[in-house]
Design a protein around this nucleic acid. Structure first.
Lengths: 219, 219
DNA sequence: CCTATACTGCACCGTCCGATGCAATCGTGC
DNA sequence: GCACGATTGCATCGGACGGTGCAGTATAGG
């Protein structure tokens, strides 16, 4: 975990098919074992590929890890975007829509268990990862989506359904009260929660969020 | 990370002095390198102790890790208790006191950098750690303190300064809006934040918390 | 048919590391 | 001074693992 190049540190030769197989297997194995414990041999076996081939595609175990986590992060981000669009573009019942959104959002760590296991690894080794890479990851993943969420909240507020002065702070609060709450309790999906429990936590979080940002109902 | 015994899995022979030296060095090295990368030799060197002595005190690298993290967790918990008592026992200015408390609380991950690095490791390897141990750790550390925080909030509410129906939910919200917010942004202290930034985040969090739980000020 | 590219299998190197065994030493209490 | 427990230094085992070299095979395009 010492490479200083921002991206990709991966040689680009070889068949894209094998390349994807390797990436897939790497995601699984890294997710299961963490960076240090994961062995390149295991990844090779998982991808039904010679170990030598891995080293033809990627210079390093480390660069393989980086490549995989950046791809995964982007993929998860677009999925989150779609979830947000589906629930927040047209608002029918505000609380209901926010809860539905929050539940699906907060369930993604169990849906993308592989990827979020990598995220846990990143956090554990945060101090060994070049800050540039950390930044790159955050911007491609979590931060990008929080920006998007802020935009949706702004739009909802403009329609008069919420009272928001700083939409980024509001997005942060929503994030904390729903997603982060679930994520903390489930160890990023490592100890999966029952769907009912997720719904419960998110509902409670959304209620609090609405108490913070709902317009005064003049009696 | 497979031991099934709940506690301590550590033989208890040897001089307590050496034992503490080992634990101290282990905390540092595990914190710096994570469980897998940390080498027993490095710990031995750090403790100015023969490697053989470590294996006289602890059966295993794993049991050493467990022992260290449980001790640390307890120690941090009592520190948190003291912080809470200092700021929440007597309330003068509610917002001011909550902010002061929150700032000190949220700064502890940088103060106890060693320990929280271990916590990060635990989370990264959560799926490899026996659930019993995970439970034990949570109960000795975070959960115990959240209970305590709930008690303080209850007391404050009883004095009429807050309106709280479920004090555990309130404690959870305070936790999320201040501590967790900071912790997320600083990667559990791995990427330390400036004091001013911590103060800013906590202040904003406390304001939100008060908007949620402050009694209606009849105009 | 020839060449270039990619993949494979395997052996191999060097290293690191957890864990053990053992003989020697130090220190304390009887 | 003797005995016992603790510690030490060292050698060593056994295994895992990252990474490389190489010779052989397949596949596709000209």
């Amino acid at each position: 975990m010492v490479s200083q190049d921002v991206m990709p540190a991966a040689t680009n030769r070889g068949l894209p098919e094998k390349r994807r197989a390797i990436a897939q297997a790497a995601r699984t194995v890294f997710g299961r074992d963490g960076f240090s414990r994961a062995s390149v041999d295991a990844i090779a076996a998982g991808a039904s590929v010679s170990k030598r081939t891995i080293y033809n595609h990627y210079t390093d175990k480390e660069s393989l890890f980086l490549s995989v986590i950046l791809e995964g992060s982007a993929s998860v981000a677009t999925t989150h975007m779609r979830i947000a669009e589906r629930h927040l573009r047209k608002i029918l019942d505000l609380e209901e829509d926010l809860v539905a959104f929050g539940v699906e959002w907060a369930s993604s760590p169990t849906a993308f268990a592989d990827h979020f296991a990598l995220v846990r690894t990143i956090q554990a080794e945060a101090s060994h990862i070049p800050p540039v890479v950390l930044e790159a990851w955050q911007n491609a993943g979590p931060r990008a989506f929080q920006q998007e969420l802020a935009r949706y909240l702004r739009a909802i507020a403009d329609r008069g359904l919420l009272v928001i002065t700083d939409e980024h702070e509001a997005a942060n609060h929503f994030n904390l009260l729903t997603f982060v709450n679930v994520v903390q309790k489930s160890f990023y999906g490592a100890i999966p929660l029952a769907d009912s429990e997720i719904t419960e936590l998110v509902t409670s979080g959304v209620r609090a969020f609405l108490r913070l940002y709902r317009p005064e109902t003049e009696s």
